[in-house]
Design a protein around this nucleic acid. Structure first.
Length: 402
DNA sequence: TTGCTGCAAGTCCTGCACAT
DNA sequence: ATGTGCAGGACTTGCAGCAA
């Protein structure tokens, strides 16, 4: 078995469920989960005794009676509490044991663990939220708190890698997965629940947080740091910072600029805007050298512009550009960049203009000092064209987000 | 089965920093 | 100036692991 790559796969609900297990039962549970075939109807796992032995701190031999103690402990202490709010707003709690049976024999080299039906949905329902982490990392953890904190942090980290791959989250949302903020009370509930409370944050920090982070940093490829967030004088939240050299490389590759293709440029909403403003026509849209020059040189600037202002402002800008164009320039990309730069220089007088301000006399950019251009934005024809572009954009955005 | 050892976890004390 | 909360150290407790 390739432990190095063996991933434990659990639903995030399960991770957030409170496991009152000690470190050893928790490790064995994770080991079993790592090896379960979720497609089986009645999932059973056979673990080699030799493998189990490697997860024990100091044991050289694994005698039958000692194994019995460990497995009894595993059965006794493995309880999961899942709390959630029903649709009608009422709280619901489910408490269940992950294993229905554990069997082993003196003359067999494996231990057979049967999962309970109740826990399987949590392990198999991975489509929405999923967490994967290396079981190998757990081997060296001595505290159940380390395992729990590691799992919670991996939950966030894997959402980061998941979403960065499909590009469906903003940069800020991705950052929040890498720098999750967790309430001290929630962290206490996840780690020391059921035990004597750590009323003093310094005790929680000393006995739970710092040893856990130390172990994670020492035994995994992750580097965890944290900041405390105070509400008043009290430390109410902890913001963790997760980094990982090898995975950063992978993420870098995932997010590295993909080589731009003609279809990328054609499918860009900016192409739709240019078509809508009649700055390019359908023949232009199939002119590869023209479109690639726009995609490489102009669209990145439009990205910056839209980020700063809005797509609506860009749309207005392009209308003015078109209405001021006497003839199609030879180098459309340079022309559009120049027009955008001029716009930015005059943004205070133009970009933030609303309808009430339109009635006032104000200085417009040179390329926009055109009566027909100013009329156009207020004419029925102009409004209609604006609507058409909005509809087109909406359609494109819908297609690309699906 | 019993008792020993080592260690993790929990608690308490003291001094310090800082908000009020 | 005072009270509150934190950090660090010391002490206590419980028990896993193991040998006899």
């Amino acid at each position: 078995m390739d432990l190095q790559n063996k991933k434990v796969v659990q639903s995030n609900t399960l991770i957030k469920a409170i496991a009152k297990m000690d470190a050893l039962p928790l490790k064995l549970f994770e080991l079993a989960v790592a090896n379960v075939d979720t497609k089986e109807k009645d999932p059973e796992v056979e673990l080699e005794k030799d493998l189990i032995r490697t997860f024990l701190p100091r044991t050289n031999a694994l005698r039958h009676d000692y194994l019995q103690t460990i497995m009894t402990n595993l059965m006794d202490k493995s309880t999961f509490t899942v709390k959630y709010t029903k649709e009608n707003g009422k709280k619901k709690t489910e408490i269940f044991a992950p294993f229905s049976k554990i069997e082993f024999s003196e003359d067999e080299s494996t231990v057979k663990l049967s999962f309970s039906n109740k826990i399987m949905p949590y392990i198999t329902e991975l489509k929405k939220n999923f967490t994967q982490y290396r079981i190998e990392d757990l081997r060296h953890f001595t505290s159940s708190n380390t395992i729990t904190i590691y799992k919670v942090l991996m939950m966030y980290y894997n959402q980061y890698t998941n979403y960065i791959a499909n590009g469906k989250r903003t940069k800020e949302e991705l950052e929040s997965f890498l720098n999750p903020v967790i309430d001290v009370s929630e962290l206490k509930a996840l780690t020391v629940q059921g035990k004597k409370s750590y009323d003093r944050f310094s005790d929680l920090k000393k006995r739970v947080i710092e040893p856990a982070i130390k172990e994670i940093n020492e035994h995994t490829e992750f580097n965890i740091t944290y900041d405390t967030i105070r509400v008043g004088r009290k430390i109410a939240k902890i913001q963790f910072h997760i980094s990982n050299n090898s995975t950063e490389k992978l993420i870098g590759e995932l997010t590295a600029e993909k080589k731009l293709s003609l279809s990328d440029v054609q499918n860009s909403p900016y192409t739709a805007l240019l078509l809508g403003a009649m700055i390019v026509n359908f023949a232009d849209a199939n002119n590869e050298s023209l479109m690639m020059s726009l995609g490489e040189n102009v669209y990145p600037k439009y990205d910056v512009f839209v980020n700063k202002h809005s797509l609506d402002d860009l749309q207005k800008h392009l209308k003015y550009v078109k209405d001021h164009m006497n003839s199609k320039p030879n180098e459309l990309d340079k022309y559009l960049i120049k027009a955008l730069d001029d716009f930015e220089k005059n943004k205070g007088k133009y970009a933030k203009r609303d309808k009430s301000k339109l009635k006032q006399k104000e200085k417009l950019p040179d390329w926009a000092k055109d009566d027909t251009a100013q009329k156009n934005i207020l004419t029925e024809k102009g409004i209609q064209r604006s609507k058409e572009i909005d509809e087109l954009l909406e359609k494109i955005n819908k297609d690309t987000s699906d």
